[in-house]
Design a protein around this nucleic acid. Structure first.
Lengths: 237, 237
DNA sequence: CCCAATTTGTTCGTATGTATA
DNA sequence: TTATACATACGAACAAATTGG
């Protein structure tokens, strides 16, 4: 921080911190702009300036006449982070088939990706995403166990919505940013058979780290996607 | 447009139109905020509201004490659209090896992607991108000939900077958005040999449509990337 | 159904600080 | 030093959408 951090940045940081701390669970309204202006002893315009960026990032959602809400992982919001679609670009929700759940310890790579110590306790889950009734993507997830106390296979598999939904509702962790690396490669035989690929057929390998509101990494995900009839969509402005 | 479009949207649209029309070439400053406020008969805050989004998109760049400038395709800006990097994420500028240039006519797919009629005149270029001294990506580009009058192989190959630089400086076309589809596939033998891949080794296939400030498609690009030692980076907030 | 209260959306105008030429 | 331009901040007013009586 500088000697003179702008007020709107201070306010923004304070709001983010409160959301990250779970004081405003997803779906709940923030105090009204006037109330926030009073609490932070600043003008309404400064409050708007502070929240503008969060709205753009999808952390908050403003509705005229209703209020400003902490965003939830609605299906619509999911597509910010789900990039696999049919070539015509039609957005379709994947069906998730749970495979297994286990406790592990972080190896060198996992620890580095998640900002943890070597051998830190991890939770690992595997599942298979289906699109159009066919297997499309095989995913392996690692979570820092300390961030998800009490999470087990039953709760993981029995969740009603998406994975990020679960993180948010049950553990107050809102995924707001993901960093991905993509490669083309030949998947191992076991992966290929899950995806219905012949031996030697390539697939898209995706390595993802998901970050919470405060920027801390909360999930490492490795995935193999069958891109014979699907494509990974990316759009940048 | 609604019956009542907000002033800031009108101002934004007007500025975009003027940039797209080449009235403010890249690198030149926009009129000062006060001047714009007078020209559009509105408050200075409304001007800022109008330009805020354009700054966020990278169309404009504001510098305190200097002015607001129409963005140029600096190397830095290039990385918004160049996603291939070494796994450690180090950003390195590619070296471009020109291959060939030709005049073509749009087939069904190309016409659809570029919003043109069938058989519309196109310009096609091919080049090879090198990273770390090794071939990394083989690209094929198609441009609507009408948008690039007088462009030939010599001018294309002899340009000083990047391709998007050329579009901008010579033809007033600023690429501000790209839509991409990625797939893993086995490249044709000719492509594989260019990239130093053995037969049957997979590569990342990238299909890109680039759009100008006004949203119109201006380039179709098909590329094969060698992702054995490189990865396609994507980050979303 | 209408009304009133609440909340965000838009716009205005002003003042002061800070970076640049 | 001076003038210019953007950055920040304030406060006010009215419009538009929503909600509850």
């Amino acid at each position: 921080m500088n000697i003179e951090t702008p007020v709107w940045r201070q306010v923004r940081a304070a709001i983010v911190a409160q959301i990250a701390a779970g004081e405003f669970p997803p779906g709940t309204p923030l105090p009204a702009e006037r109330a926030l202006a009073e609490r932070f002893s600043c003008a309404i315009g400064t409050i708007r300036r502070a929240t503008d960026g969060l709205v753009a990032e999808g952390v908050l959602s403003r509705q005229q006449g209703r209020g400003t809400f902490v965003a939830q992982h609605t299906p619509e919001r999911l597509f910010r982070f789900f990039h696999l679609r049919r070539p015509d670009g039609a957005a379709e929700l994947p069906r998730t088939e749970f495979l297994d759940f286990a406790e592990r310890r972080a190896d060198r790579t996992q620890a580095a990706a998640l900002g943890l110590e070597l051998d830190a306790p991890l939770l690992r889950a595997r599942h298979l995403q289906h699109l159009g009734g066919r297997p499309a993507m095989l995913e392996k997830l690692w979570l820092p166990a300390t961030l998800f106390p009490g999470l087990d296979g039953a709760r993981f598999a029995g969740r009603p919505g998406t994975v990020y939904d679960l993180y948010q509702r049950e553990f107050g962790i809102s995924v707001t940013r993901i960093d991905e690396q993509l490669r083309a490669a030949i998947p191992p035989a076991r992966v290929a058979s899950r995806l219905g690929l012949r031996v030697g057929e390539p697939a898209l390998f995706i390595q993802r780290v998901a970050h919470a509101v405060d920027g801390k990494p909360v999930e490492l995900r490795l995935a193999w996607a069958d891109t014979r009839d699907l494509a990974y969509f990316n759009s940048r402005a």
